[in-house]
Amino acid sequence: MKITKNSVVTIEWEIFDLDNKLIEKSPKPYSYLQGGYRGIMPMVKEQLYDKTVGDIVDIKLVPADAFGEIDEDLIFVDQLDNLPGKKDDIYVGLLLEIKDRKTGEVRLYRVTDVSDNKAVIDGNHPLAGLHIRFKAVVKDIRPATAKELKRGSV
């Protein structure tokens, strides 16, 4: 079977920097619904059309086609006392759910630095701003169920 729109595709993937250093790999096979749905980067989806089980896609992506450019508006410094929990529990790498005062949207932020009773908080994806190489191996393909099509995801 070839990958077509409305196929459920299972891949194992790896992300490398442009020096071919492994940044991240799928902890387990990842399944998504091929077509005009979310779930995987559009440029990768395009490369996967017509592939079969065992095929490999290996593509270089600029930030705009991968995890986005760095949005400076999503980076700010705040006093530790203003953050949820005890200030002794705030550390680099901590993930915080913070509600946007203007939109009310809850977003995941990462603490990237702590010093002088302050923390740098970043709402960008950890790989934002990076040019990457995305490599995937097709592990399985099947037709989507009616329920998956209605929901728009696996």
Rank of each mutant, 00 (worst) to 15 (best):
33 L>C: 04
104 G>W: 12
41 M>H: 15
112 T>R: 04
93 G>V: 07
15 I>D: 00
5 K>E: 13
15 I>T: 09
115 S>V: 05
31 S>T: 13
3 I>V: 15
58 D>K: 07
118 K>N: 14
47 Q>R: 15
127 L>W: 10
146 A>Q: 14
18 L>V: 13
67 F>C: 04
138 V>N: 01
32 Y>H: 06
150 K>R: 11
93 G>P: 04
76 F>C: 05
101 R>L: 13
80 L>A: 05
95 L>I: 13
104 G>A: 12
43 M>V: 14
84 P>M: 07
37 Y>T: 01
54 G>H: 00
33 L>R: 02
33 L>A: 03
123 G>E: 08
135 K>L: 10
12 E>M: 03
94 L>A: 14
130 L>F: 10
44 V>P: 02
39 G>V: 03
106 V>P: 04
146 A>V: 13
109 Y>I: 03
116 D>L: 15
151 R>W: 02
80 L>S: 05
16 F>E: 05
152 G>M: 09
110 R>G: 03
18 L>T: 15
105 E>Y: 09
65 D>R: 10
51 K>F: 02
44 V>S: 04
57 V>A: 13
58 D>W: 06
150 K>V: 08
26 S>Q: 07
113 D>M: 10
121 I>Q: 02
49 Y>R: 07
5 K>H: 10
64 A>P: 00
113 D>L: 11
24 E>V: 13
88 D>F: 09
42 P>V: 07
57 V>S: 11
2 K>A: 03
95 L>P: 00
48 L>W: 01
91 Y>R: 15
125 H>W: 05
40 I>N: 08
77 V>N: 12
137 V>R: 11
36 G>Q: 08
92 V>T: 13
76 F>R: 04
32 Y>L: 10
89 D>N: 14
151 R>H: 04
27 P>S: 13
58 D>M: 05
16 F>L: 15
46 E>K: 15
72 E>R: 10
23 I>T: 07
101 R>Q: 12
119 A>E: 06
47 Q>Y: 09
75 I>C: 04
21 K>P: 00
55 D>V: 00
